[in-house]
Write a protein that binds this DNA or RNA. Structure first.
Lengths: 248, 248
DNA sequence: CCGTAAATTTCGCCA
DNA sequence: TGGCGAAGTTTACGG
């Protein structure tokens, strides 16, 4: 495709805030928080209607380079090269894409107002505990969620156990790491500063990494197995899902 | 576009491991580590040559749904709906895209063997200190990089200061947070366990968050201002890399 | 705006 | 393969 024709097409598409996809042979440069250079190769560039820019190579989940929404996009042709420059400020960053060849351009105004719902998040685990505190243990009573601690941090679930002892619960939707345990221990210290008594500490997660177990023993952290999936079942959302997705 | 024609096109493209882009009206379902439902809307689906799948809405950096490389992709038409199913195992996850309409399909084999180079990373900061330890302070001598600690963790740079005192340096390419300071303090404790003496602790970063300053004072953590950009400059003077950086 | 933490984080390194 | 930590992390939700 002629580069001048490509430039016109892209310019029109951007003015109309169309979803724009450019396929071609390009080099990519980035300068901002870091710097990067991507040599000449065939790849796909997407410019979305919010003026975010993504550079995708033929493999991998992540874009190699990008610019977030509301970037300022400039187009020009220089020395038979189509240059797309996407700038943002704060932090000041510039993404420069140099197309040596443009194979194909697609652009279209896309309409997408659909709801996106995600289940089996850490938030669902918290809601399950609040809905049925006995899944932690019999007699557990939540006092507060997202309790703010003095210097910094938020306790996921703060409550009292059946013997009236203050209890700090940290939730993780994946196996807990040593870092997660340290975070929980910091919360324990925060509660101790505020109340003058050392609370129980419970990590509620699907599992615990080996290295974290050591840290748990040292700091008297208890483990309660709780998975995101189980939490969703407790919340009774499973039915809403499996009419769409076959359960096996 | 006829869905049967679309299916044929996509099937051929996948067999040939072409970069495939499908634009149309779709619903998206995900079931695996979590679950999600995305209602009917116009969006762009990319299937890369490594069989990774990305679902992009008209705005935002992130794909709303995806499947990583090497997913198993099945196509079928059911009730006048084109269904693309991408499965992976370990963890078991399935992404289901239901196209009610397909507006456009692009597919092409893309060739991209280019090098990707990133500068001004945390790794560059470490290399800069090893190349010129005086940027930490006069007389500083690195002993070890990425020193492994007993229970867990790696010290970025481990060394001795001009008075012979053990020194632990934690690097951050961005302003240090209270979590970063706590991580550093854990490393200090690890060194104390191993050597029986409490080392100096230095956080080397462009800056420090307000809340982190409190944590630094409590734990006697020192701050040394070092930016990724400055580090690259130092490396450039020593190794002639500056022809890549700052050339605009 | 900063601060805090989640995320289907992903990715890369290394044992 | 699993643990460990960085990332131009991004995104969301507070104050």
């Amino acid at each position: 495709m002629e580069l001048s024709e490509a430039l016109d097409k892209i310019r029109r598409a951007l003015i109309n805030r169309e979803f724009t996809i450019i396929v071609g042979l390009s080099e990519v440069f980035y300068e901002g928080r870091a710097s990067s250079i991507l040599g000449l190769g065939e790849r796909v560039i997407m410019i979305k209607s919010d003026y975010s820019v993504l550079v995708h190579r033929p493999t991998g989940y992540e874009p190699t380079n990008w610019q977030p929404p509301n970037s300022k996009i400039d187009l020009k042709i220089d020395d038979d090269i189509l240059i797309i420059e996407a700038r943002r400020t704060n932090p000041s960053e510039v993404l420069t894409i140099k197309f040596h060849k443009v194979y194909n351009i697609f652009s279209q105004k896309l309409n997408d107002d659909a709801d996106f719902s995600m289940y089996a998040t850490e938030e669902d685990m918290k809601r399950a505990i609040l809905a049925d505190p006995s899944i932690i243990e019999a007699g557990f009573k939540p006092i507060e969620e997202e309790k703010k601690l003095k210097p910094s941090g938020f306790i996921d679930v703060f409550g009292i156990d059946s013997s009236g002892r203050l209890t700090v619960i940290e939730l993780k939707r994946r196996n807990a790491t040593v870092e997660d345990i340290r975070q929980l221990v910091e919360y324990v210290k925060g509660v101790e500063r505020e109340y003058g008594v050392r609370p129980r500490a419970i990590i509620a997660a699907p599992g615990v990494q080996r290295s974290a177990i050591r840290e748990m023993k040292i700091n008297n952290v208890e483990f309660k197995c709780l998975t995101p999936r189980k939490s969703v079942e407790i919340l009774g959302k499973k039915h809403g899902l499996d009419k769409y997705v076959g359960s096996e």
